[in-house]
Amino acid sequence: MTEQSTLKVLIVDDYDMTRALLKIILRGQQFEVIGEAMDGEVGAAMCEELRPDLVLLDVMMPKLNGLEALAKIKASSHQPMILMVTGAEDEKIVTQALNLGASGYIVKPFNTASVIETLNQARESFIVRNAAAVNRT
């Protein structure tokens, strides 16, 4: 992570337009998109390879859905923050994602301001989490 707290982001969503829109929103906001995946299986593999700080993870995807990919990522050696991106307003899905280790969620359809606010909150949590980890060592 750089001095300006630029976070490396991996976007995992099967819908091209959602990935493109998220990249546009992140541009110029101290987030660097380091990769994109169209399904949970590839996303989980890319997460281990690219080691992002933050993963934007869709819930409904082919191969591995977002909840399955979330569990796989959290079981790996690299522990990024994960924000679920979902059109589902089903409280059960949101609760399950949070219980599996998601740091929060973005509800589709989203607007630029809400995404930036959520990501900036994630950035602050990331900084605090890493500072606490450094202080423990």
Rank of each mutant, 00 (worst) to 15 (best):
V9F: 09
Q29N: 04
V85A: 14
M84E: 04
A37D: 03
K92N: 10
F126H: 11
D53E: 01
V55E: 01
K8S: 12
A75G: 15
L54G: 01
L100E: 01
I73W: 05
K8G: 03
L26K: 07
N99C: 13
L100H: 07
R136T: 07
Q4E: 14
D90G: 05
L98P: 10
D58R: 14
D14V: 08
A71Q: 15
R123K: 11
L119C: 13
A88G: 09
L10G: 03
E36K: 04
K72T: 11
N111K: 11
L54I: 07
P80V: 02
M38C: 11
V42S: 08
T2R: 10
G66Q: 08
L98K: 10
E117W: 06
A44D: 10
M38W: 03
A20S: 13
L56S: 14
L7V: 05
R136D: 10
K63R: 15
L83T: 02
R51Q: 02
K108C: 07
R27V: 05
T95V: 12
N65L: 09
I25C: 08
S77I: 01
K92D: 06
Q4N: 15
A37F: 12
L98R: 05
A133Q: 15
D14L: 10
D58K: 09
L56M: 13
K8E: 00
A131G: 12
K63N: 15
A133K: 15
I73S: 12
A102C: 07
A97W: 00
Y105I: 01
I93D: 07
E48H: 02
C47Y: 00
A132C: 11
G28T: 03
A88E: 12
A131N: 12
